[in-house]
């Protein structure tokens, strides 16, 4: 979904028939009373396009919600999925990453590299239920108005989602921590890094791979990795049985068990004891993120 689609033009009062006006006003008042939620939004902007677009919006005096706090990077290609997840873990209600339009990157193709990372990140975030809180868009240096529009749209969208569950909800934090572990994993990072190259040049055997097929593979890998990351997170909290894990992990015990076995083989979890007949597992050789 793009920002434009999200923005619903508010009806102006002039268009509302006289007799309904009162009603609308009362409603509006009621709304402002409940609507005290001011989301915290972190905008990661590339220096050459979107940051310049933000400057231009200001100079052109186009107002936008001041909720967005800007973090400048030189290129959207510098935006590590880790950083976005970390930001959400810190309690930000939304993260907006902006870069140059495809073809306009100051560094040739940093934004395309970024897009690959962001698409993978969105898939990861989907498992955590937080994907709606991250969005990436392209804004050029000359698009001050568009910058304001994107920020307004995203802020409204986050407002409608309500506050981030992170501060209150243990499960939400647990999942994000697992996601952070997932995107810090060497193999996954390697795969994301290869993504664009494989798309463009085919795989190592010179075979062309089409996007759909690749996406299916990625989906599977990401789901598996997410479950494993959650197993590690859960067992870091304390020894846990497969049943304990199933309470927090969105997968059945059979699937979890399969992954636990994999992790045992690679030496990342070990049996720590038993509760009744069920073995308890604990993480080994990994640290909390």
């Amino acid at each position: 979904m793009t920002a434009e689609e999200r923005i619903e033009e508010p009806e102006t009062m002039d268009e509302v028939p006289e007799e309904e006006k009162e009603e609308v006003e009362v409603e509006a008042k009621a709304e402002t009373e409940t609507e005290t939620f001011e989301p915290s939004i972190v905008g990661i902007l590339c220096n050459w396009c979107s940051y310049a677009g933000a400057d231009l919006a200001g100079i052109s005096r186009i107002q936008y919600p001041p909720n967005i706090r800007v973090v400048r990077v030189m290129c959207s290609g510098r935006v590590d999925p880790q950083l976005v997840i970390y930001t959400l873990l810190e309690g930000a209600d939304g993260v907006l990453a902006l870069g140059c339009h495809p073809g306009d990157c100051h560094y040739q193709s940093g934004n395309l590299e970024a897009q690959e990372k962001f698409e993978a990140l969105l898939k990861v975030l989907r498992h955590t239920g937080m994907d709606e809180r991250f969005q990436y868009e392209w804004v050029s240096a000359s698009e001050g108005a568009r910058f304001a529009e994107v920020v307004r749209g995203f802020t409204d969208h986050i407002r409608s989602l309500g506050p981030s569950p992170v501060p209150e909800d243990d499960i939400a934090r647990f999942r994000l921590r697992a996601a952070l572990r997932e995107v810090s994993d060497f193999r996954l990072r390697w795969l994301i890094g290869r993504q664009r190259n494989i798309q463009e040049n085919g795989d190592a055997y010179g075979q062309e791979s089409d996007r759909e097929k690749w996406d299916l593979v990625m989906d599977k890998v990401l789901r598996d990795q997410f479950i494993r990351a959650q197993i590690i997170e859960r067992t870091l909290e304390g020894p846990a049985s497969v049943e304990d894990m199933a309470e927090v992990i969105d997968a059945d015990t059979v699937e979890i068990f399969r992954h636990v076995q994999r992790l045992r083989i690679t030496g990342r979890v070990a049996i720590a004891g038993h509760r009744g007949h069920s073995p308890l597992y604990r993480a080994t050789g990994v640290e909390a993120e």
Binding site: M74, G77, K117, R189
Partner: peptide, 11 residues
Amino acid sequence: GCGNCHATCPS
């Protein structure tokens, strides 16, 4: 100094 390598490096 774009930082693309930084965000890409698996380790």
